[in-house]
């Protein structure tokens, strides 16, 4: 087994564990106070103007009118088109959108390559000449996804980098790591394109590499260009979980667990239980008006100290 293969295993393991760790950390936070922000898309018939169930008289006596389709629609507009940026920051959107879209295509591309690899284990051929329809389809589909994905991703990342280097307000608010992230991404995309253009137009080598990878078999020696591209990709996967670029995880929580979370606290509910638990947490803020003990005790304390005196 080659070092390159080992590196790839490490990369995938770090990426998955790191991302899962992040998600877990967010998912196991204590219940937070309600902090919703409108419009909330699952508000049936009210989403288009930002309304909520609070507009209904005695709302607690009525069933919640929730629309999953409306929420899914809003999510796809945000995930695929990044609409908040489209409406509020067009100059950056023209790069951010192709960048993210390129990334999505690239992810599908990698998944297809993986799939080809798995199919390969069972002796299923993926190529342009096989008589099997699925094998041919996978072969031909990887090409547009791979090429367009990399071109868009590369173009977008270069645009974002140039914006960050030249636009006053971005320049002033960026730090070293912001540039580094983009440079690394550009390197991954560009090296991939280079390998594709110079030696692997049909992604046959790549497919072979992944077939061996998923079947834990040693690989044939690869070209220097190919190795560099793989090392960069692995480096990115290892680095990713430690950065804000994991916002695909964060975004789930910011939207579904904060902005759009409008669950009312009902007597006897699970939510009420979580709140009761939190009210039993210890508090040791030092200001004189705060009584130490549990939150429940601090919130019912009567004495008050002065401040600023």
């Amino acid at each position: 087994m080659s070092e390159l293969q080992l590196l790839m295993y490490v990369a995938y393991v770090v990426f998955f564990i790191g991302t899962a760790y992040r998600a877990r950390k967010m998912a196991t936070m204590p219940v937070h106070l309600r902090w919703d922000l409108y419009p909330i898309p699952h508000e049936k018939n009210k989403h288009h103007y930002g309304g909520s169930y609070f507009e209904e008289i005695d709302w607690w006596t009525k069933p919640a009118e929730v629309s999953v389709t409306s929420e899914l629609k809003e999510m796809s507009k945000e995930i695929i088109f990044i609409q908040s940026m489209y409406y509020n920051n067009r100059p950056l959107w023209i790069f951010s959108f192709p960048f993210h879209f390129g990334l999505y295509l690239s992810i599908v591309f990698v998944l297809m390559i993986f799939l080809s690899g798995f199919l390969g284990i069972f002796g299923f051929e993926v190529s342009g000449t096989t008589s099997n329809f699925i094998g041919r389809a996978l072969h031909y589909l990887t090409m547009p996804f791979g090429i367009i994905g990399s071109v868009l991703g590369c173009f977008g990342a270069v645009g974002l980098l140039i914006s960050r280097l030249t636009r006053e307000e971005l320049k002033r608010t960026s730090v070293r790591s912001d540039y580094f992230n983009l440079v690394l991404l550009i390197a991954v995309f560009a090296s991939g394109l280079y390998v594709w253009a110079t030696e692997d137009m049909t992604y046959t080598d790549l497919r072979a590499f992944f077939t061996n990878l998923v079947s834990f078999k040693g690989t044939e020696p690869v070209s220097t260009g190919f190795a560099i591209h793989m090392i960069l990709a692995a480096a990115f996967l290892i680095y990713l979980p430690f950065t804000h670029m994991t916002h695909f995880v964060g975004k789930y929580f910011t939207y579904h667990k904060v902005r759009w979370e409008d669950e009312a606290n009902v007597k006897g509910s699970k939510l009420e239980k979580r709140i009761t638990e939190a009210l039993g947490y210890r508090i040791n803020w030092s200001a004189p008006h705060i009584k130490k003990g549990t939150w429940a005790e601090a919130a019912t304390a009567t004495e008050d100290g002065g401040q600023n005196e």
Binding site: H32, N88, L92, E169, H247, G250
Partner: peptide, 27 residues
Amino acid sequence: RENNWGFLQPLFLTIEYCAKCQTCASA
């Protein structure tokens, strides 16, 4: 966790995930 349970999750999300795109400035 205990001293700021009420806002810990939204706070962490804000601290960890800003991409510094400055879209918010326009608002």
